[in-house]
Design a protein around this nucleic acid. Sequence first.
DNA 1: AGCGTAGCGGAACAGAACGCTCCGCTCCGC
DNA 2: GCGGAGCGGAGCGTTCTGTTCCGCTACGCT
Lengths: 205, 205
Amino acid sequence: MSRRAEADRNDEAVFLAARDVFADVGADAPMSAIAARAGVGMGSLYRRYPSKVDLMRAVCTTSMERSMAEADRALAEEPDGWSALTRYMRRCVDLRVGSLARLAGMFPATAEMFALAERGQKVIDEITGRAKAEGTLRADVTSADIVLTISEMSALPAGPYRHRWLALVLDGLRAPGAGILPGPAPDWSSVRDRWVYQESPVSRS
Amino acid sequence: MSRRAEADRNDEAVFLAARDVFADVGADAPMSAIAARAGVGMGSLYRRYPSKVDLMRAVCTTSMERSMAEADRALAEEPDGWSALTRYMRRCVDLRVGSLARLAGMFPATAEMFALAERGQKVIDEITGRAKAEGTLRADVTSADIVLTISEMSALPAGPYRHRWLALVLDGLRAPGAGILPGPAPDWSSVRDRWVYQESPVSRS
DNA sequence: AGCGTAGCGGAACAGAACGCTCCGCTCCGC
DNA sequence: GCGGAGCGGAGCGTTCTGTTCCGCTACGCT
């Protein structure tokens, strides 16, 4: 394999490793664990991302972009809101967007990230709004519920159960006359507030 | 307040703090974070538990005992399997048994813990068996599904949404004709194997 | 009232862990 | 045959964390 091809393959391997390790162990995963998972040395890791924070940022923005692309595609290709929603959620679990939740608040977020998040919010609102209008998605959930659900589900350890569990939740999401959900409904601020700009990482207390 | 009363109150404060901090941040939460959360100095923490591993073990065994007591009570007091199951799950979320999942495999488990777990397995089997026999719990879930669900749910960060989310899952658990769940069903070994005895903590890679 | 001590908080220490740098090596492409 | 792009991983300095230790407080007994 050419040097260039190896580099390209390593680019993706590093991204996937970082995403999975962050999703599994959280923001304070050691860089060496990521390098090891990618099957790459520290040198190769640091040539791509000058610092750990850069890596985190890259994982977040790329994950956001990829999941948003899935949302757009689901909206464009699926015949109805429910199938768009389920397809989107399934893809997010595959994409391990739970890494976002594990990384939230652990490094200074950029303005670009907030802009990306805002666009994401719009498209998820669109999907859930459509499914609710159809009457296939229960009326007492919010789009923030959906985002929180996806986060948790894709933060689950790798294994055969993530999709099984998602299916369970989807059945709950569709349940028509099961009584209304208790407690206040989360709104977008519950999601966004995890990311408030900060000079230094939040303490772990 | 008498010295003795203060000590008693600190006992419980330390336990609750450790449970919540472990559930929130995971097994490598600093002891100082636990002391701070309990509103107690390091000295008071270490007088109660000679080492961090002792604390972890105590959190695990006490959580197991308390949750098992809830299971017994639900079984004894509730009129049917479904209400016993929902009550038990709700109480587990309150008890933050998700700390167990975050601690699993991070320290050598004792034989006592395995014995406790075995008893827990029996009573959960009993509850789910009853609910399934009634036809209120969907037939394609296993008791390991239930345990995994409880773990994840009570590992969610504190806040108003844990019970809301549990309600969502419960609706999915009850859904009658929603198609069968994808993938292999987890069994008890998926739960038990997290705890295999080991001389030193598992690496974080 | 005075004192012994149980219980407390937190500074300090030693060692482990981690981010990051650096360097010698490999092997593609000319 | 050679120049250098790209690689792996040992090592450095720092930060973090488990644990100890000590001086202090104030309850309760005499």
